[in-house]
Amino acid sequence: MNYGIVSQEQLEAIEEILTQKLIKLGVDCAIIIDMAGNIITVKDNSKSKYDIYSFAALAAGNFATVDAMAKLVGETEFSLLFHKGQDSNIHFSKIDDELLLITMFGRDISLGFLRLNVVEAIDQIKKVWDRQE
């Protein structure tokens, strides 16, 4: 296993996918983290400004908690994790057992539309990521 190291080429490919599939759609921010709370990459519309490292630690904890709850009640996972706010929303998707894609978006994007694009982005990211194994 080699997920701890990612090459410049891979990162650039992944960032390009995030830009094309999500940022262009109008999401405020797309972050890939691992389950330990490390940040793999961040793409944003450069308007948002907050502490991304704390965010990643909390997001990984949040996802891990929900995942553990799913197992307790006999589900393999709760596939959709979504937090809705007044002006912004957060959407979590598992890329694989080690990686999470988190998107933050405002009121002008529908959840359904976002999910379509997230699924496509994840498919493409997986291909880039698997190249290293």
């Binding site: 701890g4 190291i5 990612v6 410049q8 990162l11 330990a36 490390n38 940040i39 793999i40 990459t41």
Partner: peptide, 15 residues
């Protein structure tokens, strides 16, 4: 496991 970003040259270490 630490995460090493070769592009931005950042290493994240969890203690």
């Amino acid at each position: 496991m630490s995460f090493i970003n070769l592009k931005d040259k950042v290493v994240q270490v969890k203690i």
